[in-house]
């Protein structure tokens, strides 16, 4: 555990998480959601938080995004407190469910994050042409005037992705965005996401419980364990960029998957 504190603290870290702890108290019972978490994330990096439910990965994501406060330690985003970074619209959030406004068309839904608190929009916010191009990339050009209920689950989640990217935010926070999708749709979504990410160069913090998903997407995978929620190990993924579907058959990919599975198992016992 103590070794993690010195694991790697690159000076150019964009997101700095130092000795963070979080405790939930409910009806007199307390749960240690996170204990002594150290993590530094570089600008433009794709980092996955991998672990079983209850390991605090979603909590950590919410702490980074300034949607909750840590009880111990501190988090800084380019030197700002998370709440300040939130007010500066530095985060594009992709929640678990697509969470689209059912009364708005796709075209208006992808504008939701930029329209709200619009004075806070950063310089990188996308114009209409930029958003149209993103919609084309994810194959939704023909659906801009559709209502969410007219779309499939996969299409809805693609709208949610475009909405986050439209903000032009330097950091994207994704909370198991593909968890509700079927396996085949899910596999496609990974490469769509990588496509979008490579165009923007944003930092991505991606919460998942799928080992394969974490490996194929990430530069680094942070393995977490529950009771108390903590970081067990951090795995550097050596697959080259851009990632392609055939890499999922490469021995390197399987070596990563095996190692991560072993890490997950050992943290359980």
């Amino acid at each position: 555990m103590t070794a993690l504190a010195t694991d790697r603290v690159p000076s150019d870290a964009q997101i700095h998480i130092g000795a963070v702890g979080k405790i939930f108290a409910r009806r007199g019972r307390t749960t240690e959601a996170l204990r002594d978490v150290h993590l530094d994330i570089r600008e433009g990096e794709f980092v996955s938080l991998l672990g079983p439910s209850g390991c605090g990965k979603s909590t950590l994501l919410r702490l980074i995004g300034g949607l909750a406060e840590p009880d111990e330690g501190a988090i800084t985003i380019e030197g700002f407190e998370p709440r300040r970074a939130r007010a500066l619209k530095m985060f594009g959030l992709v929640p678990q469910a697509p969470a689209l406004l059912p009364w708005h068309t796709v075209a208006k839904n992808v504008r939701f994050l930029t329209d709200v608190h619009s004075r806070g929009n950063g310089p990188a916010v996308l114009d209409d042409a930029g958003i149209d191009s993103l919609l084309a990339t994810v194959g939704l050009s023909a659906f801009t005037h559709s209502l969410p209920h007219e779309l499939s689950g996969g299409m809805q989640q693609r709208v949610s992705l475009v909405r986050a990217f439209a903000l032009g935010a330097p950091i994207l926070l994704m909370d198991e965005p593909f968890a509700a999708l079927d396996e085949i749709t899910r596999a496609d979504m990974r490469y769509l996401l990588l496509d979008l990410w490579q165009r923007t160069g944003a930092t991505v913090v991606f919460v998942t419980h799928s080992v394969a998903e974490a490996v194929i997407l990430s530069d680094r995978v942070v393995v977490m364990a529950p009771r108390p929620g903590r970081v067990v190990t951090i795995e550097e993924i050596s697959l080259p960029r851009p990632r392609t579907p055939d890499m999922e058959d490469a021995p390197e990919f399987h070596a990563h998957v095996q190692r991560l599975r072993a890490d997950l198992r050992s943290s359980h016992s």
């Binding site: 995004g65 949607l67 939130r86 619209k89 985060f91 469910a97 969470a99 608190h117 903000l167």
Partner: peptide, 13 residues
Amino acid sequence: DANLLELAQSVNA
């Protein structure tokens, strides 16, 4: 929807 509320919070609505 709780997800929508959180989404709005994430941009300081």
